[in-house]
Structure formats: structure tokens, C-alpha cells
Design a protein around this nucleic acid. Structure first.
Length: 793
DNA sequence: GATTTTACGTA
DNA sequence: CGTACGTAAAATCT
């Protein structure tokens, strides 16, 4: 049994869920590992622990630390008598001490104090307690869940900072807001006219709710100030909510409003896309997208409105309010408020240039989403027939060899086959730490390992080939095209799609590269267009008379790394080979150089086999891969792999030195800046995972940003050209454009001019070379062999 | 029917 | 102990 602890007149009371074994052993709340994390986050928030009154909801440790065992039912709705008694004790304590704020750590603490069950939805908001009326509650992640999942650390610190501010007074003090949801068309139009009549209301936040499929606007919300929000329904229960004339008048007034104001939106690419595609309204003046604002300020934090509202504003939680009729109007008002706070944060962090850059990409990403890319149905059929036949043939071969029918996509059946029926050595997944349980895997790497153990058995390779064909057919060759024969993707400028806050497993890193996911405005295709396999790329053909130009930065990340680590020999090689035609370029081979440096032989003696070793080692070591990966990739022994890595580091000490300077930089500020000025604050737990991720940040994000700078330059250049260049695809270090055949050479010159962009590091200026391919389909075509020294661009 | 796990495609 | 990304199908939960 644990007694609460701390000064009786404390302004802040901390309430955990239940003692862990260490707290139980020492009889004091939050000691041991949980206590250490608590101390850490409190000090980061400027709260002194000795000034807080500290207790738990449950007064003794539950079996297996499972709070759910203090409930009668599985859903944790009915507390046991014991828990009810403890909650009553907690109530008495709060009444006795009357703290200005109670900080609830974890879901069950939130429940005990407010009756609310979802920490995800309510953390970070100042709430009114239902246990003791007139007492404020702010819930955040428990130290234990932070220890389990370190990405909760920083949000918890932000929550505690907010709690610290609110601990100075006992009342709620929400920002005063007037919300006018579900108004009439006349009221809505009157409001828009009022905005137009007030030129000093320069910014208007806009938020739409849509219904699927089709992304039709169901509701429109507007705000000119964080304290006000208004919204209007166009559709109610799948039927029009307004007379046709009224609806038309609303849209006309809205279009006029958008011409005169600067818009603020959350995920503007979607809202602008819908308004353009479905309502033919073009929002041209966009002041800020809160998604982008949040991304440049805190690239690793969630970016949905619920989260941003909890961090930036002092409003009640509105996103999951059960009487949620104010939803859309509150979205509009709070988007305005969030945007204002983040605008200040952008200046405080000095990331305005990155913000402006990302904002400039919105029209490009949106245009590419709406245009889409055409599928050639004839080619698709040809590919489908070929692969379907192969698939069936392999399937029947496998059925005969194995002696029964197996679903090779079923992990369960594969496990049975490989490790029980065939009795092969069980392969396990890589674990993050030795404390995690081992998980059996039947993936491709496992199959390849087994293949090596059982030579001359065709079954493994056959399974691999069969699975490959199945993926190709199911995921890619059968993707649905639009009635116009196009497929579409939503390019996400801020990287990882982030509206799904539920996704708690992974940190949202987003190093500035675009991600690609299903477009819900034009929901055709497989969604992600950045992972189409080469074979399926064949069905994306240029229309007759047109060519697809592929422009990719050659060896892009390797060039950046060479400069970062100041590898003079490599730098010179990239410089010397810059702009050369194919024949002359061949002798500058960085993978041969790598191997030659490793073993100390002349470059021209390196064999093809040895070149592959050089390539794998350089690539692996750049990102600090381990011997196991090298072993798998090269099919060699662990000892041999270790030896190669050691040889590489001995020949190239600069890489190790650079890794050390990165670590020092992280220790100082946890922030790295890429060669184009993008900053990234790393929030991971201190350790190797953090380091590896950080090593890849500068090269990866520099190349990603570089391509986007080039795309922006191209996009701005196109109107002044005498011919058209269409933007088809963005693939991280390459872009694809569609051009009329006769303009291919002109286009390539324009592309080269846009893509050659100087980078600076250590007072050196350098360029990343660009390779061009002219293609009839996304997959098939010729490399353009040009001596750029003789061409004026 | 909804959510989680597993595997796999790209740069 | 490469990193980053998104999606499909099977397995599992409710």
C-alpha cells in the first residue's frame, strides 16, 4: 500500500495509475525507472517535483501491472469495490488539498478524474474534473508508457509545460469562442460579405468536411479570428441541404471571398484540390497550411488538428466531443488559432525559408495528383496474361513438389510447411533488443537463408518467384484505372500521412521527402505510386508522338556523403566525371574505387565480383549497417563481412570521424541541418537507433529537397516555354516528365538547367550530376548519351 | 466488421 | 541492430 506524498499546499497534484514494483518495494510513489522518467519530463517542463503532491489511483500494484484487473468487466467500465474505494480516497485527498491542477498520468488516471477513457483524444487539454467539480485536470502519457515508447516523451513535456502555466490559477480560463455551426445560407453569406467589408481581416481560415466516395463538400467552415467559427451544411444524410439557388449563391460568394483574402487551411492540398475538382473554385492566395507549419517546426510530432490544438491552444477538446455539432466551425476557428501560434514558432525556430519552400510545392503536388498518369490497357493485358500464366504454372509445380495445396501468402501455412512439415531451422525476425520475444518469420530473407542450408532444392526459389508474381498481379497489374484510363496518387509534402494519430508504433520522421498515398479526390490506382515495381512500370506508356523523360540525380546521396566526410579522392572523382558522355564516364567508378581503396590495389585491377563487394560495403557503411546485412546481401560469412567492414573503415577513417561529429551535434542541440537549410530535431531516445537515423538525414533530405527545388524551378519555367513539359512522377531523386517527341532535346536542356543546383559545404561549392533517359514507357528506354561540356544550357 | 500482424514494393 | 515510405491479405479480436 502506497501513501501519497508531498507538500499539502501544492499547486500541482500528480496522479499515476498504480505503483510499479519499485514503488511498492520502497513505499514511495514514482521511484526507480518510472521515477527517473518522471523527474526528467518534469524538469524539462520547469516543474519541481518536491513542490508537487504525488499519488496514485490504485494504491497497490496490480498483478502483472495490469490496471484492467481492477475492473469487473473486460472493457473496464465497472471498477471493482477495491478500486472504487481508492478512487474515493483520491477524491477526498483532492478536496483536502485543492490543487490548482491535477496532472493525470495515463489512461486510468484520466478515467478516474474525468470519466473519459481515451488518453489519445484528451491528453494535453485542460479538462474539468468530474470526480471533484471545479478542479482542473490535464492528462498526459504515463512515465511507464514513455519508457516503452519514447516518441511519447516530447508530447508529454509539452503537456507538462502547459500544465505548469495553468497551475498558477484554479479556474479553467478557456479562450472565449463563439461558434455558429449549421447556420442558414443567408447567415453564411452575410458573414462572408462582412468579411469582405472588413479589409483588415486579411486572413480567413477554411475547413471542409467531405463525404466519400467522390470527396463532395458536405460542410464548409470559416473563421476570421481564433475566437470565431461558422459552418454551413451542403449535404445532410446524403441529400442536398440547400435549395439549388442558395447553394450557387454561397459558392459564388465564397469564390469572391477567396479572391480577396489569404486562406489558412489544415492540409491545403486536399481542401484546395476538392474545391477545384468538384466546385471549380480556385484558392490562389494561401497564407499558411498548418500541416506544413507543424512539419517544419516539429517534424517528428503528430500533425492532426486534435494534437496541434492541445499543444497550441487553450480550448476545450472539440474533436471527440460527443455532442459534436460544432465540429466544423471549431475546426475553422482552431485552425486559425493554431496557425497563428505556429507562425510565431516558425520565427522562433528560424525555419521560415523551409516553410516558404514547402508551401510553394502545394500547387505542384496537387496538379500532379489531379492529372494522374495514363495506363496502356493493351500492355497491361499483355503483362497480365504473361504473369498469370507463369503464376499458375509455378503454382501447379509447387503443388506437386509439396504434395498439397498451400496459400503462400499465409504466414501461418508457411510456418507449418517450413518449420514443421519440412523441419527446417526456424528463422527469427530481427529484434530491437534482446529482451523482446523472438518472432518467427517466413519472409524472403528467411527463404533465401534456408535455400543456402538446403542446396539443390528448387522449392524455395519457386516459392519466392511465385510470391513475386502474385504481388505483381494482385497489387499492381490489376490496379483500377479511372474512366479516362488514368491512375492517381496523393503526394504528401510533409511526408508520412499523419491524420491517423492512432498509429502509435512508429515515429513520424519525414526527412523532407514526399510520400505518396491513395488519392481520395481521384481514388484510382494502387495508391502509392512511389513503389511500383519495374515490371508493372511497363504498362505506363507515353501516348504516341510523346516521350517520357526520366531525369535522375546520379549517385546523389553518395556525392553528398563524399562532401560531408570530405573524402577528397571521391570528391575529385565526381568532379572529374561531371557532364561526361557515357564512354568517358565509365572509368570513374566509385564502387571500383571503394574496393581498390579497401585492399590497396589499382582501380583497373578490380573485377566485377569485387566491384559488387565495394558497392555493397560503401552503401551499407554509409548508413552504418551491420555485418549481418552485408552477409545476407553478398551471401558470404559473418566473419568475412566483418572483415570487409573493418577494411573499409581503415581505408576511409573520414566516415567514422563524421559519425562522431554528428553525435556531438546531436548532443548539443538534437538538431541537424541539411545542405539546403532544413532543420530536423531528433526526439528519439539517445542511442544507436537515433544515430543511424541521424546519419541518413542529411544526405537523404538534401537530395529530396534538391529535387523539389528543381521541380519548382521547372514548374515556374514552363509557362515561358514555347512547348509543354508535363510533370508525371516524383521519385525522391528522380522526376519523370512527358514531352512531345520533337521537343525532347529542348526539354532535356531545360531540365538540366533546372536541376543543376549548387550545394555548399565547408566553403566548397558542388553540383550533383543529372542522368537522362528517354523512354516510351516508365520502364523501357535509352540513356541519353551526351557530352555536356559541348552543350550550352 | 474492425484492427493488428506480416510481408513486400520503391528510393 | 541501413533509413524512409504505403498497401494488401491473412490473422486475430470483438
Amino acid at each position: 500500500m502506497i501513501r501519497s506524498d508531498g507538500p499539502l499546499d501544492a499547486k500541482i497534484m500528480l496522479v499515476g495509475e498504480a505503483p510499479d514494483s519499485e514503488a511498492s518495494r520502497y513505499g514511495k510513489p514514482f521511484c526507480g525507472r518510472e521515477g527517473k522518467t518522471l523527474d526528467d519530463i518534469l524538469s524539462q517542463a520547469g516543474i519541481a517535483r518536491y513542490q508537487c503532491y504525488i499519488g496514485y489511483v490504485a494504491r497497490s500494484q496490480p498483478p502483472a501491472d495490469k490496471m484492467s484487473l481492477y475492473f469487473e468487466d473486460k472493457k473496464c467500465n465497472v471498477p471493482t469495490a477495491r478500486l472504487r474505494k481508492w478512487v474515493e480516497e483520491l477524491r477526498q485527498e483532492i478536496i483536502l488539498h485543492k490543487p490548482n491542477i491535477v496532472i493525470a498520468f495515463g489512461m486510468y488516471a484520466l478515467w478516474a478524474l474525468t470519466g473519459l477513457k481515451s488518453l489519445q483524444n484528451y491528453r494535453g487539454y485542460v479538462l474539468s474534473s468530474t470526480l471533484v467539480p471545479d478542479v482542473k485536470v490535464l492528462a498526459t502519457h504515463s512515465p511507464r508508457s514513455i519508457n516503452d515508447d519514447w516518441k511519447l516523451y516530447f508530447p508529454a513535456v509539452l503537456d507538462l509545460r502547459k500544465a505548469a502555466v495553468h497551475s498558477n490559477f484554479p479556474d479553467l480560463r478557456y479562450m472565449k469562442q463563439t461558434l455558429e455551426p449549421n447556420v442558414t445560407a443567408k447567415q453564411f453569406i452575410d458573414y462572408m460579405e462582412e468579411c469582405i467589408a472588413h479589409p483588415e481581416w486579411e486572413d480567413i481560415s477554411v475547413d471542409i468536411e467531405t463525404i466519400q466516395p467522390g470527396s463532395h463538400v458536405e460542410e464548409l467552415g470559416l473563421s476570421h479570428d481564433p475566437s470565431f467559427g461558422i459552418s454551413l451544411y451542403f449535404v445532410k444524410g446524403r441529400r442536398p441541404a440547400l435549395p439549388e439557388n442558395d447553394e450557387l449563391k454561397v459558392w459564388q460568394t465564397f469564390a469572391r471571398l477567396m479572391k480577396q483574402k489569404k486562406a489558412i487551411m489544415q492540409n491545403a492540398a486536399f481542401d484546395i484540390g476538392v474545391l477545384w475538382y468538384n466546385n471549380h473554385i480556385l484558392v490562389e492566395n494561401l497564407k499558411a497550411d498548418t500541416l506544413i507549419q507543424a512539419h517544419v517546426c516539429w517534424p517528428e510530432l503528430p500533425r492532426d488538428l486534435g494534437f496541434l490544438g492541445s499543444v497550441c491552444l487553450n480550448v476545450p477538446p472539440w474533436k471527440h466531443d460527443s455532442g459534436a455539432s460544432v465540429y466544423n466551425s471549431a475546426d475553422a476557428a482552431n485552425t486559425f488559432g493554431i496557425s497563428r501560434v505556429l507562425d510565431g514558432e516558425i520565427d522562433r525556430q528560424n525555419v521560415r525559408h523551409t516553410f516558404d519552400f514547402e508551401m510553394g510545392l502545394i500547387p505542384i503536388a496537387l496538379m500532379m495528383q489531379l492529372k494522374g498518369i495514363k495506363i496502356d490497357e493493351e500492355k497491361r493485358n499483355e503483362l497480365y496474361t504473361y504473369w498469370k500464366n507463369r503464376q499458375l504454372q509455378m503454382k501447379s509445380e509447387l503443388d506437386i513438389i509439396i504434395g498439397k495445396e498451400i496459400n503462400f501468402k499465409s504466414h501461418k501455412q508457411m510456418k507449418q510447411l517450413l518449420y514443421f512439415d519440412l523441419g527446417l531451422p526456424i528463422q527469427y525476425k530481427r529484434r530491437k533488443s534482446v529482451t523482446e520475444p523472438r518472432v518467427i518469420t517466413t519472409d524472403a530473407t528467411a527463404l533465401r537463408t534456408l535455400e543456402r542450408l538446403v542446396p539443390d532444392n528448387p522449392v524455395f526459389n519457386l516459392i519466392l518467384e511465385y510470391k513475386k508474381a502474385t504481388t505483381l498481379i494482385n497489387n499492381f497489374l490489376t490496379m483500377e484505372a479511372s474512366p479516362e484510363g488514368t491512375v492517381h496518387t496523393s503526394y504528401n509534402i510533409t511526408g508520412a500521412a499523419s491524420d491517423d494519430e492512432e498509429d502509435t508504433k512508429k515515429t513520424k520522421r519525414s526527412f523532407g521527402r514526399w510520400s505518396s498515398s491513395k488519392s481520395i479526390i481521384r481514388p484510382y490506382g494502387s495508391g502509392n505510386l512511389q513503389n511500383i515495381p519495374n515490371e508493372a512500370r511497363k504498362m505506363f506508356k507515353a501516348p504516341s508522338g510523346y516521350k517520357i523523360i526520366e531525369s535522375d540525380y546520379s549517385q546523389a546521396e553518395a556525392v553528398v556523403v563524399a562532401h560531408l566526410i570530405n573524402d577528397q579522392r571521391l570528391i575529385r572523382m565526381f568532379e572529374d566525371s561531371f557532364g561526361l558522355p557515357k564512354a568517358e564516364k565509365a572509368k570513374y567508378d566509385i564502387h571500383k574505387l571503394t574496393y581498390a581503396q579497401m585492399v590497396g590495389i589499382p582501380m583497373d585491377q578490380v573485377t566485377a565480383e569485387q566491384r559488387k563487394i565495394g558497392k555493397t560495403i560503401r552503401h551499407g557503411t554509409n548508413y552504418s549497417a551491420g555485418p549481418k546485412v552485408i552477409m545476407n546481401r553478398l551471401g558470404i560469412s559473418m566473419t568475412q563481412a566483418k572483415q570487409y567492414i573493418q577494411m573499409y573503415h581503415r581505408a576511409n577513417p573520414a566516415l567514422g570521424i563524421w559519425h562522431t561529429t554528428i553525435q556531438q551535434e546531436l548532443r548539443r542541440t538534437r538538431t541537424l541541418t541539411n545542405l539546403l537549410g532544413r532543420k530536423h530535431k531528433f526526439l528519439d531516445r539517445w542511442g544507436d537507433d537515433l544515430f543511424r537515423s541521424a546519419y541518413s538525414f542529411i544526405p537523404q533530405s538534401t537530395v529530396g529537397d534538391l529535387l523539389n527545388v528543381a521541380m519548382k524551378k521547372l514548374y515556374d519555367t514552363i509557362p515561358s516555354l514555347t512547348f509543354d513539359i508535363e510533370l508525371l512522377l516524383q521519385l525522391h531523386d528522380a522526376m519523370y516528365n512527358l514531352v512531345k517527341e520533337e521537343f525532347v532535346m529542348d526539354a532535356v536542356k531545360v531540365l538540366r538547367k533546372c536541376m543543376l543546383i549548387p550545394l555548399r559545404h565547408n566553403f566548397n561549392e558542388f553540383y550533383i550530376d543529372v542522368d537522362f533517359k528517354v523512354k516510351d514507357s516508365w520502364a523501357e528506354g535509352e540513356e541519353l548519351d551526351i557530352d555536356w561540356r559541348t552543350v550550352d544550357v
